[in-house]
């Protein structure tokens, strides 16, 4: 086994730099305003090559979740969760929910971005529940 690694293309490196600065940025299209994830040369929506790096507002909604019971990486001993989160900006990202795990259905719960440290990768963006007002 080994530790997990990030895929670092030409366009991923600036994103990980922003993550290390605790200010996760994604490319926003200069022509149609869509966000790109994963980072890429062109906008899949309008094919524009033009973009700027925009900080995320830091909020999203859980679309789904899983709990790993089998180990695949040294730096991820089970059990651990992975959540699929749709950011308010549109893209869907995978992450880990830190802090207390909800009971029952996680779909639709609101989360915010926080940052954690991984032995292999360094700073990694994570998610935590936003306290819902009752």
């Amino acid at each position: 086994m080994a530790n997990s690694q990030a895929v670092i293309s030409l366009y991923d490196e600036p994103m990980w730099e922003s993550i290390r600065a605790h200010d996760w940025k994604l490319q926003q299209c200069d022509d149609c305003s869509e966000f790109r994830y994963p980072p890429a040369a062109n906008c899949p929506h309008c094919l524009s090559m033009d973009y700027h790096w925009k900080p995320l507002k830091g909020r999203g909604t859980i679309l789904s979740w899983v709990i790993y019971h089998r180990q695949y990486f040294d730096n991820f001993p089970p059990p651990y969760n992975v959540v699929a989160v749709q950011l308010d900006e549109g893209p869907i990202v995978m992450s880990n929910l830190v802090g207390p795990e909800p009971e029952g259905n996680w779909v639709g719960l609101k989360v915010e971005i926080c940052y954690g440290e991984d032995v292999a990768i360094g700073t990694v963006p994570k998610m935590r529940l936003i306290q819902q007002s009752a």
Binding site: S4, Q5, A6, V7, P38, V66, Y68, Y72, F73, N75, F76, Y80, V82, M94, S95, N96, D118, I121, V124
Partner: peptide, 12 residues
Amino acid sequence: YHAPWGFTSQGA
């Protein structure tokens, strides 16, 4: 792509 969050294997 999602390996930094431990998300791997097609089953997952």
